[in-house]
Amino acid sequence: MVENQRWLDVLAHLTLILGVAVVALPVYLAFVASTHDPSAFVSGLIPLLPGDAMGETYAAVLEGGVKSQMSVPILLMLKNSLIVALLIAFGKIVISILSAYAIVYFRFPFRQLAFWMIFITLMLPVEVRIVPTFKVVADLGLLNSYAGLSVPLIASATATFLFRQVFLTIPDELMEAARIDGAGPFRFFRDVLLPLSRTNIAALFVILFIYGWNQYLWPILVTTDEGFTTIVAGIKRMADVVDSEPLWNYIMATAVLAMMPPVLVVIAMQRLFVKGLVETEK
């Protein structure tokens, strides 16, 4: 801080606390709701402390004992989400790192055109091209499949740009030294570029995993078979009951469980993630 005045410090902390509260309070309430019985949250008086029904609620949710609300066990939905999120994260990283490699290090005809084509996809997220994309996926027979869930989300340029920027900061001399050391394009990629982009890959993995995990619109569109329901889409389906009260405690317990994998990924990769966002190892 440039200024070192007491009231500024207080103000800064207040702002931060307020921010944390805005983000964390709903999460906390979801957790609280999952530990009470279903009626507690619709009675008008919202409890602020965890109740005593936590054990049975989570056990019931995990064992799939809430058949009245879900036709699919939650573990299957978690598995679906995990597969889709991993496919999206890995698929995007592999494709974008290779295309960035091609664009930065190779001179081929229509290189500029290729670059701009990739650039244009930035303006076309799935939500914009949802109808034609659905048509294509349907024609390919990919409805109700992991491929259908992940491939359309893999095609986008953000990650390509990130890797392009990373590669542009790597000095040309390094590539020339590698050429003199007898490293062909593949070895240079494997032995020099990949290790040097390690932290960027990790950071991107975290972001893309969460991006894939939190997909909502696309999964509910391309899956009709409940065996492919992802957890985020599943939560919504749980709340859509026609002739009874939604079981909010189960829904919230599911929501809390659904938050866990992204949190774990962030915690596990925190060190690399922060490094990848703030520094480059050149």
Partner: peptide
């Protein structure tokens, strides 16, 4: 070849 900026592999 020996380069001006050494061009050592940093990792």
């Amino acid at each position: 070849m020996v380069f001006q900026n050494y061009a050592l592999y940093p990792h």
